[in-house]
Deep mutational scan, measured.
Amino acid sequence: RDEMEEWSASEASLFEEALEKYGKDFNDIRQDFLPWKSLTSIIEYYYMWKTTD
């Protein structure tokens, strides 16, 4: 399955904003920016995001 497909463009930009603010503190990212996403989903997205450019 492709996690990228499940993320909207606005969620992707929220994620990048959160990453700038918190770094890899995924709990804070989830709490402040993406509370409707699971922690697992955020972490999986991060690793996919990191490996695609």
Rank of each mutant, 00 (worst) to 15 (best):
I43P: 01
S8N: 11
D25W: 03
S41W: 01
E44C: 02
R1A: 14
D25A: 15
A9L: 07
A18F: 01
E5Q: 08
Y45V: 00
W49S: 14
M48E: 10
Y45R: 11
W7F: 04
Y22Q: 00
T52Q: 06
K21Y: 06
D53C: 14
S8C: 01
M48A: 12
G23Y: 08
N27S: 13
T52F: 07
E3D: 12
D53N: 14
S10P: 03
W7D: 02
T51Q: 15
A12S: 08
E44K: 10
E5N: 12
R1Q: 10
W7H: 01
E20D: 09
S10E: 12
G23K: 00
D2G: 14
E6W: 01
S13Y: 05
L34Q: 09
I43V: 08
I42P: 02
F15G: 03
E3A: 09
Y47I: 01
E17I: 05
T40Q: 14
Y22W: 02
E3C: 01
D25T: 02
I29R: 13
W7S: 03
R1C: 13
I43R: 14
K50H: 11
S13T: 10
E5H: 05
T51N: 12
I42F: 05
A9P: 09
K21V: 07
W49R: 15
M4G: 00
A18S: 00
Y46R: 04
W7V: 00
Y46P: 05
K21T: 07
A12F: 00
T51E: 06
Y22A: 04
F15K: 01
E17L: 11
D25P: 02
N27A: 12
E3N: 15
T51R: 11
Y22K: 04
E5S: 11
S10M: 11
A9Q: 10
S41L: 06
L19R: 05
E5W: 05
I42T: 05
E16S: 09
K37Y: 02
D28F: 12
Y45E: 03
K37E: 02
K24W: 00
D53H: 14
E17M: 09
A9C: 06
W36Q: 08
L19N: 03
Y22D: 00
D2L: 15
E44Q: 12
L14S: 03
E11C: 02
M4N: 12
W7A: 07
K24S: 11
E20M: 06
L19V: 13
I42D: 02
E11G: 04
S38W: 00
S13Q: 13
S41A: 11
S10T: 12
G23Q: 03
S10N: 12
N27H: 08
Y45S: 06
W36R: 06
S13L: 12
W49N: 15
W49E: 13
S38A: 02
Y47N: 13
L14R: 05
W36L: 03
R1H: 07
G23F: 08
L39V: 09
S38T: 05
K21G: 02
W7P: 03
M4S: 09
S13C: 11
M48R: 14
I43Q: 13
D28G: 13
T40S: 09
D32C: 15
A18L: 05
L19A: 04
G23V: 01
A12V: 13
L14E: 00
S41H: 04
E5R: 09
S41R: 01
D25H: 11
S10R: 11
E11H: 10
R30I: 12
L19K: 02
G23N: 05
Y22L: 06
I29S: 06
T52G: 12
M48N: 11
A18R: 01
K37Q: 00
Y47D: 10
I42C: 04
D28K: 15
L19E: 02
L39Q: 02
F15T: 02
F15C: 00
G23A: 06
K21A: 03
A12Y: 03
E11T: 06
M48I: 06
Y46H: 10
E20T: 10
G23R: 02
Y22V: 13
Y47W: 11
M48S: 12
E3K: 15
F15N: 00
N27R: 09
E20S: 08
Y46C: 00
E16K: 08
D53V: 09
D28I: 14
L14A: 08
S38N: 08
S38L: 04
Y46G: 08
S13K: 15
S10I: 07
L39I: 07
D2F: 11
W36P: 02
D32S: 15
E11W: 03
E44S: 12
E6N: 11
M4Q: 01
K21R: 08
E3G: 07
K50L: 07
N27Y: 09
S41T: 02
E16C: 03
D25K: 15
S38V: 02
E44D: 11
S38D: 04
E3I: 12
R1I: 12
E16H: 10
D28R: 15
W49Q: 14
T40I: 03
E6K: 13
F15V: 09
E44V: 03
M48Q: 13
Y47A: 15
I42W: 10
Y46I: 05
S8T: 12
E6P: 08
K37H: 00
T52I: 09
T51A: 14
K21H: 04
K50W: 01
A12H: 12
E44G: 04
R1S: 10
W49F: 10
D32V: 15
S41F: 06
E16P: 05
K50M: 11
K50I: 05
W49Y: 13
I42M: 02
S8D: 06
W7K: 06
E6F: 11
E6G: 09
S13P: 04
G23W: 01
D28N: 11
T51F: 03
E5L: 08
M48D: 05
K50Y: 11
K24A: 13
S13G: 12
L39C: 03
K21C: 04
I42R: 04
W49V: 10
E20W: 05
T51H: 10
D53P: 12
T51Y: 14
E6R: 10
E3V: 11
I42E: 01
M48T: 11
E16M: 05
Y46K: 03
D2P: 05
S8M: 03
S13M: 13
I43C: 07
T52M: 08
K21S: 03
S41C: 04
W7Y: 07
E6Y: 09
D25Y: 08
N27K: 06
K37L: 02
L14Q: 04
M48F: 14
E3L: 13
D28W: 13
S38F: 02
T40A: 09
Y47L: 03
S13A: 15
S8V: 00
M48H: 14
E44T: 07
G23I: 00
K21N: 00
D28M: 14
K24I: 06
K24Q: 12
L39W: 02
E11A: 05
K21E: 01
M4H: 14
L14D: 03
L39P: 03
S13I: 07
T40P: 09
A9D: 06
S8Q: 03
F26L: 10
D53Y: 06
K50Q: 11
K50A: 08
Y45G: 00
W7L: 04
L19P: 01
D2K: 15
K37A: 03
A9K: 07
R1T: 14
K37S: 05
T51W: 02
F15W: 00
L39R: 08
S8R: 00
T52E: 13
E16W: 07
K24V: 10
Y47Q: 14
E17C: 06
Y47P: 11
E44I: 03
E44H: 08
A9N: 04
M4I: 10
S13E: 14
I42Q: 01
N27D: 13
Y47E: 15
Y46S: 07
D2S: 10
D2R: 09
L19D: 01
K21W: 02
D25Q: 13
D28C: 15
K21F: 07
G23C: 08
A12R: 14
W49D: 06
D53M: 12
W49C: 13
E6L: 03
A18Q: 06
E11M: 13
L14I: 07
A9R: 08
K37M: 04
A12E: 07
K37R: 08
E17H: 03
D25L: 03
E11Y: 03
G23T: 01
T51G: 13
D28H: 06
L14Y: 08
K37C: 03
T52Y: 08
S41M: 03
N27F: 12
S8Y: 13
D28S: 15
L19H: 07
Y45D: 07
K37T: 01
E16A: 11
Y22E: 02
S8W: 09
A12G: 05
A12Q: 14
E17N: 05
A18G: 15
E17S: 08
D28Q: 15
E44F: 03
D53G: 13
E44L: 04
L14C: 05
Y45M: 01
R30Q: 15
E11Q: 02
T40M: 08
W7Q: 00
D53I: 06
Y45F: 13
Y47H: 14
W36H: 10
G23H: 03
Y45H: 13
S41K: 03
K37I: 06
L14N: 05
K50G: 01
Y45Q: 06
K24P: 14
E11S: 01
W36M: 04
A9F: 03
S13V: 13
E6V: 15
L39S: 06
A9Y: 01
S8E: 00
E17Q: 06
L39E: 01
A18T: 00
K24H: 08
E11L: 04
I43H: 12
T51S: 12
K50D: 05
I42S: 04
N27T: 11
S41Y: 07
S10H: 11
R30K: 12
E3H: 09
S13N: 10
L14K: 11
D25F: 05
S10Q: 10
S38G: 15
T51V: 05
M48Y: 15
Y46T: 00
A9W: 07
W49M: 14
M48V: 10
